[in-house]
Write a protein that binds this DNA or RNA. Structure first.
Lengths: 337, 337
DNA sequence: CTGTTAGCGCATTCAC
DNA sequence: GTGAATGCGCTAACAG
């Protein structure tokens, strides 16, 4: 392994001169600089970023926290297309700014906190996690910039879609379509769940509609969506609309509706959340809330980079607009009484 | 930041004793060890993995090379569910073994090679890349273990599905179903494309069938699949089957078939490749080749870990069995002449 | 079993 | 402009 000392010896300069040349410092003559760079090139030198990190106390690495989910069935972590898309945009933006992406794990060190400390990560993006857990909240005590998706906390920055507003808009639409009962799925206790619920309640009281049944769900799984529709179908209701917490469970529900030969969308409406591309690919197209995964990832990266570069940058909650995608699985009910 | 020297001073031991205690070495008494660990805990010590990496010359980090794709439209990188699923399994296995996942970027250092050198990565998993590119082949010259998905090269280890065998099996099935012409999409020039083509040709000559048209494609995109079906439909053929390079383009093709009111699967059969879960979620279910993404990721991790831990471990090409998923978009043609 | 010593490769004072 | 010296935090020899 070639070091700056090897280059120094070979080129006749000192190690510090080499270091200066390599890092583009100004207090070195162009002539010496070029000479040094040329020998570095010739000798096949690659800087040791570990040694550099040790002395600069920065790693140029951003930690990603992406919960893997319990077992194979739950669509969390990388296998959930929505989170993947956010992460993909985030990754591109981060890398274009000269930083690196690394996953935070709680397997090697005792926990996430220890891992972040140990690796001297420059910043953290929490894409998907159970924010109610002590292990996650503990992270907020790190002295490093953190931005979290779908959470809100004074101690860190955060980003999410306009869950409340869009949920209110959705409810009004559904009722306007002629549905007479709404089954509304609530995810785990969380910031997002609360926001959506607030939006829903606001809309309900505004339009004076109260035929709503709340269903508590756990994870975003196809299977869970399937069984929810089975349960709803057992009520033998007509003109009902089921709002799922995400597109995967909605697609699971759609599959159940198909298997049970339910009439979608007239007897039963199905609405997703997230707007993953695949929902628009096959028929019927999924009616859903389209979150702007690209903007979410990119803006999360931009904010985190600001926080890293400027210690005075304040924490902030960023809201990204989403939009309703009214397609085939929930739309104006036609005909039939 | 607490260091081992702080702990040493506080506990009255030497720094090396602290280091030994912290790393679970044997040449230290249990009594001293416990005492040291207790004060470390009390002082809120977190090891500096950077300093450790500097001296051990290992990073415990595995680099992931996952090509982002060109622009938003192409389903590559993290947004492609199939690659995400492989990476997810890989990640779980790697982390359970005390290693970390980090993405390789060609943005900060001049190129991938420089990045790997600079970061002192312990191993590399190439999930998705253009292996024809010099920049990728250059990586094979690293003195670090590498495993690549869907490529084969003497200098590294690799893993892929049984592309040739399954493609042969697929062709025989399609002809057996009664299709009279096959449109077979070929991806970019690559190991996989060659393997599949070999399998196809073998099958064709075996069953003495030659009504096949090859279509050259570029990337796995929904749009490309769509336009392929448009082109095929222009031929106004019946009883034709189109084999796509992956499920995304197949789903795009299926959408086109729907829009053009083509009769799937009787007039036109559509076959994907990969077996992403979403293909089985909506109707019609996609007929496809199901690659075992879980096994691919896990076995890639296992092999890479072996290569890292044992320098004598030989490079190897691992083949993971896949299977045909005969569903709705291509199956036995019934009725009609 | 324990402590002393010497670096890992680099960036950064501070003299010159 | 340049080079010698110092130390980031840690592990690994070695000597006791």
């Amino acid at each position: 392994m070639i070091t700056i000392y090897d280059i120094a010896k070979e080129s006749g300069f000192s190690a510090s001169a080499v270091s200066k040349a390599l890092n583009g410092y100004h207090d070195i003559s162009d002539k010496s600089k070029n000479e040094i760079l040329k020998t570095a090139q010739r000798m096949g030198y690659y800087p040791n970023s570990i040694a550099r990190n040790l002395i600069t106390k920065r790693s140029s690495s951003i930690g990603i926290l992406l919960y893997d989910g319990i077992g194979e069935k739950n669509k969390l972590g990388l296998t959930h297309n929505f989170f993947s898309e956010i992460l993909n945009s985030f990754k591109i933006e981060i890398e274009n700014n000269g930083y690196f992406i690394t996953f935070i794990s709680d397997k090697s060190d005792e926990n996430y906190f220890a891992h972040c400390k140990s690796k001297r990560l420059d910043g953290i993006f929490i894409v998907c996690a159970d924010f109610e857990k002590k292990e996650i909240q503990e992270l907020f005590g790190l002295d490093k910039p953190i931005i979290a998706f779908d959470n809100r906390n004074e101690r860190i920055s955060s980003i999410s879609s306009d869950n409340g507003e869009i949920s209110a808009e959705l409810i009004k639409q559904i009722v306007g379509f002629g549905y007479e009962r709404i089954y509304y799925c609530l995810g785990r206790e969380s910031y997002v769940t609360k926001e959506r619920l607030n939006g829903v309640r606001g809309a309900l009281s505004q339009i004076n509609f109260n035929k709503i049944t709340y269903i508590n769900t756990t994870f975003c799984s196809i299977d869970e969506g399937y069984s929810i529709i089975e349960r709803v179908a057992a009520d033998n209701v007509k003109r009902s609309c089921v709002c799922f917490t995400d597109d995967y469970s909605a697609l699971g529900g759609l599959k159940a509706a198909h298997d049970l030969r339910l009439n979608v969308p007239d007897d039963i409406g199905i609405v997703g959340f997230d707007g993953i591309k695949i929902g628009q690919l096959l028929y019927p197209n999924l009616t859903t809330v389209q979150q702007d995964s690209h903007a979410l990832g990119r803006q999360a990266a931009e904010k985190l980079l600001k926080l890293i570069k400027n210690p005075k940058e304040p924490n902030e909650h960023i809201v990204v607009p989403s939009k309703l995608l009214i397609k085939d699985t929930c739309r104006k009910i036609i005909g039939r009484t």
